[in-house]
């Protein structure tokens, strides 16, 4: 997708021309791209990218839907086969592209559909969390959780908590790509 594609739904931030090529106005700080989180009634909303394994967390989120649980609309889930498929580089990518927080979620260790995937996830992200914190990232902005296919309430609570934890932190501009 073109980096110049419009921020649909937030006309205040861009001028929409025909053909949907919008140019950001010079509102955001010159060093960072516009904040991804949208303003609703003038209030900034955190924008969270979640990576969910197909077998547990994605299923848990499905169950939350089937149970008509309500939670904040701030997270978008990317479906992956296993939390072990989540490359730390995807996490960095999300921050670069404007996510205010990232969640990696999968089956509880011992319940991995593929047997061992999430044990590696656990090692990898325990380490990455510490490294990101060391580099000044607020630990609330990058979290990992085990959410099983039956833990719909946990999924709801994790999304809700994460949204509320990130809200006071404001938009994440660290490592944000500068738009050309």
């Amino acid at each position: 997708m073109s980096a110049l594609s419009p921020k649909s739904g937030s006309p205040a931030d861009c001028a929409v021309t025909e053909g949907h090529v919008g140019l950001p106005v010079l509102d955001p700080p010159p060093t960072a791209a516009p904040d991804t989180g949208k303003t609703k009634n003038g209030e900034w909303q955190p924008y969270i990218v979640g990576f969910a394994c197909n077998w547990c967390t994605y299923a848990g989120a499905d169950l939350a839907g089937l149970s008509r649980m309500q939670y904040p609309p701030n997270m978008r889930l990317v479906r992956v086969p296993c939390s072990g498929r989540v490359n730390p580089q995807f996490v960095l990518r999300a921050f670069q592209k404007g996510a205010d927080a990232v969640l990696v979620a999968g089956c509880h260790p011992g319940d991995c559909h593929y047997g061992t995937g999430n044990y590696f996830t656990r090692r990898r992200f325990l380490l990455m969390q510490r490294l990101l914190t060391f580099m000044g990232v607020d630990p609330r902005r990058f979290q990992a959780r085990w959410i099983s296919g039956s833990e719909a309430p946990k999924f709801r609570d994790v999304v809700t908590e994460l949204t509320e934890q990130v809200r006071p932190l404001g938009p994440n501009r660290l490592w944000r790509e500068v738009e050309p």
Binding site: M1, Y47, K97, A99, F120
Partner: peptide, 27 residues
């Protein structure tokens, strides 16, 4: 993910696909 050079990829959930998803969500 174990592969540092990304020589290993996966059909249906490729690096390119997931990156495109992340980009589309954020941009």
């Amino acid at each position: 993910v174990a592969c540092p050079s990304s020589a290993m990829n996966m059909g249906g959930f490729s690096d390119e696909q997931i990156m495109a998803e992340v980009d589309a969500l954020c941009q």
